[in-house]
């Protein structure tokens, strides 16, 4: 009877453990020190590029703000010549501004990707530096120093990595001022249409992120449902005596921001972006109408 019991449970355990062997093999084929060094170099390069792109975008943005202030002042003073000249400058510099902002966003993405790859490599290396009892004192000291250095690099990288902001920049107020020519109104309409296209790409990007998070949420919910349904009536308890108080996982097991909250944050942002798209599309159409429907 007992043999049957052990045989059955043993077979089940082997069946369940079989996929683990394949997974370990996938994970094992790495040279940790070389991987960390190359990824760290790639990370530093991506970080430097992103910083340079940020400075370039910030410089153009500052100039743009100054131009907006000058434009507002000229409009208030009813200085049509200055307004016209400034609009020409806006038109000339707008593509460069867009290009630099896009370059900054792309460089941030590359920086983040490089950082994540470095974090994975350091994690893997730290895993292999688990102290062994057979090593000499000198070797242990060296490994400890290396371990601490890697850990401090890991923390620095994690704190440096750019956070993708889950909020939108304030939307600039675009209005038709007295004296705006049809060409100027049409230009403003195009600016708004460009912004609508950018928002459309942002919505697509957010949809992808929401879908990925939702898949992960579903996996975790299925796991929780399966566990809870067995625990509820004690079906999972194998009654061999002295039931232990259930020892739940340590604090670090629970995520700081639950996945449900992250999904909600992304959905709220998507809703806001869609509202802006609608508002800008309506306004751009209105501007085109006022400009006489030009192309």
């Amino acid at each position: 009877m007992r043999r049957l019991l052990l045989h059955t449970a043993g077979t089940a355990a082997i069946c369940l453990l079989a996929p683990l062997a394949g997974l370990r093999a996938q994970v094992a084929a790495v040279s940790p020190q070389a991987v960390v060094e190359s990824r760290q170099a790639a990370y530093e390069e991506a970080k430097a590029k992103s910083e340079a792109a940020r400075l370039a975008a910030a410089r153009v943005r500052d100039e743009w703000s100054q131009l907006l202030e000058q434009h507002a002042a000229a409009s208030r003073a009813n200085d049509r010549d200055s307004v016209r000249e400034l609009l020409a400058v806006f038109k000339e510099r707008s593509p460069e501004k867009s290009r630099l902002e896009q370059a900054w966003r792309s460089s941030q993405e590359l920086w983040k990707e490089a950082g994540q790859e470095l974090v994975v490599a350091i994690d893997d290396y730290l895993e292999r530096l688990w102290p062994t009892t057979e090593q000499s004192v000198g070797a242990a000291e060296y490994e400890n120093a290396l371990y601490n250095e890697l850990l401090s690099t890991l923390r620095r990288v994690e704190s440096e990595l750019p956070e993708v902001p889950l909020e939108l920049e304030p939307m600039p107020e675009v209005t038709i001022r007295p004296g705006d020519t049809p060409g100027e109104i049409l230009y403003k309409a195009r600016l708004m249409e460009n912004r609508v296209r950018y928002y459309a790409s942002l919505v697509a990007e957010l949809d992808q992120k929401i879908e990925a998070l939702a898949q992960r949420q579903r996996r975790e919910q299925n796991r929780r449902d399966f566990m809870t349904s067995r625990e509820r009536f004690g079906d999972d308890v194998v009654p061999i005596g002295n039931r232990r108080p259930e020892l739940s996982d340590p604090a670090s097991e629970a995520p700081r921001v639950p996945i449900e909250v992250r999904i909600e944050q992304h959905r709220e942002l998507r809703g806001e972006v869609e509202m802006r798209m609608l508002e800008l599309s309506r306004k751009a159409e209105e501007f085109r109408g006022r400009a006489g429907g030009g192309q």
């Binding site: 019991l5 059955t8 089940a12 194998v238």
Partner: peptide, 19 residues
């Protein structure tokens, strides 16, 4: 040794769920 029924000696369980 203990209370039969609530404190057995050996046990095994296997659950599978398709969702």
């Amino acid at each position: 040794g203990l209370v039969p029924g609530e404190e057995a000696d050996n046990g095994a369980s296997l659950y599978a769920e398709i969702t």
